[in-house]
């Protein structure tokens, strides 16, 4: 029954006192939200703490939820605000420092001509590339790639204008592509050679 109910209907039901409405709502969003947070903070324990805080805020603020806003937008707004608080409190807001970029450059280089870009390596590079992004760019690109949200929706969540979101997304995509593309370019000769060898 709850599968058919929209997020908004579930949230309203929960706010009205229907405790059972919370579970399906939580189940739908737990994975994406947790991944979103983990992509931002990169530390499992911190992500778990923030994840719990976000849901705590949802529970506490349930009476203030209005169905004019999509539940997911509201949820990610809360998450974004919590992340902002986290960065402020931690005072270790990660930036794409020169060291990070240099490290990524070094790691992006193929170590040997025989190096093959495994799936694991590809993931690892993307992970590093994401880590090197400024938080606002990382936030935007994760919402775009994982949630497939439109620029407008991302703007609603982050509080930034559409053009700002677009700009952040473009910068972030360029950086990610350059990391992965460089790696792929480097791996392609060896892959081609391997293919050629196998044909032979």
């Amino acid at each position: 029954m709850d599968v058919e109910r929209s997020d908004e209907a579930l949230m309203l039901a929960y706010a009205a006192g229907e405790a059972e409405a919370f579970e399906p709502l939580y189940s739908r969003h737990r994975g994406p939200l947790f991944r979103f947070l983990l992509r931002q903070v990169r530390v499992q324990a911190t992500a778990e703490e923030l994840f719990q805080d976000v849901w705590q805020r949802v529970i506490t603020a349930r009476d203030r939820y209005r169905p004019e806003a999509k539940f997911s937008t509201w949820l990610y707004q809360i998450a974004t605000n919590r992340l902002t608080d986290h960065w402020r409190a931690a005072t270790h807001r990660p930036t794409a420092s020169a060291d990070d970029m240099a490290r990524l450059e070094r790691e992006a280089d193929p170590d040997t001509p025989e190096h093959t870009l495994s799936v694991f390596e590809e993931r690892r590079r993307l992970q590093r590339a994401l880590e090197a992004l400024p938080p606002d760019q990382r936030e935007v690109v994760v919402l775009r790639l994982e949630q497939e949200l439109s620029l407008e929706a991302i703007g609603e969540i982050t509080g930034a204008g559409r053009e700002t979101v677009k700009s952040r997304l473009r910068y972030a995509m360029d950086k990610l592509r350059s990391r992965l593309g460089g790696a792929r370019d480097a791996s392609e000769p060896s892959t081609a050679a391997r293919n050629a060898g196998s044909k032979r």
Partner: peptide, 21 residues
């Protein structure tokens, strides 16, 4: 609210979703 990803984005999204988050 949702906007389909283009080819470039899909490729990155595929890798991103495969990350051990």
């Amino acid at each position: 609210r949702h906007d389909p990803l283009d080819a470039d984005e899909r490729e990155l999204a595929r890798v991103l979703r495969a990350l051990p988050a």
